[in-house]
Design a protein around this nucleic acid. Sequence first.
DNA 1: CTGAAAGCGCTTACAG
DNA 2: CTGAAAGCGCTTACAG
Lengths: 350, 350
Amino acid sequence: MRPLPHMTEHKVTSSAVAKRAGVSQSAVSRVFTPGASASQATIDKVRKAAAELGYRPNRLARSLITGRTRMIGLVVAYLDNQFYPLALERLSQALQARGYHILIFMAENSTQSVSKVVEELLDYQVDGIITASVDVTGDLAKRCAQAGIPIVLFNRGQDEAHLSEVTSDNLAGGRSVAKFLVAGGHKRIAHIAGWQGSSTGRDRSLGFVDALKELGVHNITQIDGMYKREVAAQAARDLFRGPKSPDAVFVGNDHMAFAVLDVLRLELGLSVPNDVSVVGYDDVPLAAWPSFSLTTVRQPLDHMVRTTVDLLLGTIEDMARSPAKIRISGPLVLRQSSRIPKGGWPLHQV
Amino acid sequence: MRPLPHMTEHKVTSSAVAKRAGVSQSAVSRVFTPGASASQATIDKVRKAAAELGYRPNRLARSLITGRTRMIGLVVAYLDNQFYPLALERLSQALQARGYHILIFMAENSTQSVSKVVEELLDYQVDGIITASVDVTGDLAKRCAQAGIPIVLFNRGQDEAHLSEVTSDNLAGGRSVAKFLVAGGHKRIAHIAGWQGSSTGRDRSLGFVDALKELGVHNITQIDGMYKREVAAQAARDLFRGPKSPDAVFVGNDHMAFAVLDVLRLELGLSVPNDVSVVGYDDVPLAAWPSFSLTTVRQPLDHMVRTTVDLLLGTIEDMARSPAKIRISGPLVLRQSSRIPKGGWPLHQV
DNA sequence: CTGAAAGCGCTTACAG
DNA sequence: CTGAAAGCGCTTACAG
């Protein structure tokens, strides 16, 4: 590397500290290696010299030997849905607390983009990978396994048996919405679904529609909202323009539900929940804002994050551990966007 | 490192590739080092062997020599204000496009927390640091300079002459809101300010109040909203409960403005903009949602991001470059939360 | 406990 | 263009 002319860029190495402390370079290393042993006298001399020189061990060099970088790769597709920044924040904090840090990669949700990104992540020698709501091919999973890098899917399920994943119980969540809406006496129930290309979207819809059928409701209109604000808004216009417009709509996530509320109230002049009940999924903080006051199924973010971190770090420490598929259930949170069944409802009211 | 029992964890090194290709390890290295030269024959042999073995160079080892990790440390305090996830997303994309990646660190906005976090960042040997809306002490800046790591403050200004920073023109933004509200015929103007401990909060307030004074408006009630939703909501209650409640309020950022709108409309039953005009700052995507339709000063995010990345990478490439303080101005975006002056207003209408 | 030495996986002068 | 060698800054057996 070319020397940098204008800066007094000390590179304080362990050798420099050793010299000043009058000990060997190995001794310095031992003082900074947790678990290694050194006499109190050595420790004192080394710490003093290190402080005077402003020495801190170079993690790169350490990592080259230990094979551990204490970096976790996070692959994320979009941050406009508030659920993801929040997940990122919590994941980062949980990992930081355990001495790890996140190397972040934005990927479009295409197989090609994700592959490329994961390949780069492997180049950086991360200790593990978390993908948030992104599909991972079997090939890719194999690459990671070959490289000895564990991977955990966050908020996305896949069939590959050897992939670890943490999701909320989307089937049960969908079911609970169905029961709630039927108990509330709704007769014309519609569904603006989460993206049917994703496990979360499919499971929520499946649970919802199945439970409705069990309750004798069969003719549900369902449109894929693609997890996109504009698509969901258009779906709402299409659904509610007709003569026999729905009296309840289950929307595949909160992010889309906010768009639907805007269309129903501000474009179509409907009253929520008098004319129509709206239920979302996620329970992002925005859902509790008075402007929306959205009834929604909570994804227990903190619990999901804790589980993801435990699973990933556990696998890093013991690669023999077998993959797990963990589903965490969350309550339906009642707010003012939906009619509440006469006689109340057993679950969360906020 | 203990061997991992259950995985076929090839560690494919350049030596393995060299052996298979029948060339020296240096030759392999050259084929994978941009700018190094090798004959076409060598390149072909090496690429073939590398592909067969699934070889990719270990960036850690490379970094140890080159002194460049192509990682940028990002220090961020909160992600609940939508401006920050968006900034993170854009910064990440812009850096990815130039071959860099973000190592993310969450810090509380305290001197102690930030110091600790930056110190860790230096341990990771990042090539540069971006801090988003976080204060950096002179000491800390000195540490980074000593380590030869450039640092750019994003959306935060400080007096230290040798710190680089990129902000929007908060003074001008505040001024434009003042002129707009006065031109709109507002008589009782209030201000729920951004956190006065931050440069953005102070500058927006300063520009606003100064311009009002120039226009002959002196008795402005100002409360610090601390950039927090709940504090801003309470400020709104306090301001608007009295008999002579304001007919306009400038809120220090959009995130607080949404809380203020909720209080005014849903708690106090006021009509916006008939009873009171509300103006925010940032122009986050939420501001354009019909529920809020918030008039606000746009922070030109993409421009700020591009500038930050150029400045940081430029400094990494040429450490002799002197620090810059760059201010980027953004328009006032007119929406329905504010009365528009008779005869219109020269700026953006959306 | 401690030091001398080997080695992690690369890049890069240095000769040829 | 190419290979042998040195070295980036550490950790970790190995002897003592």
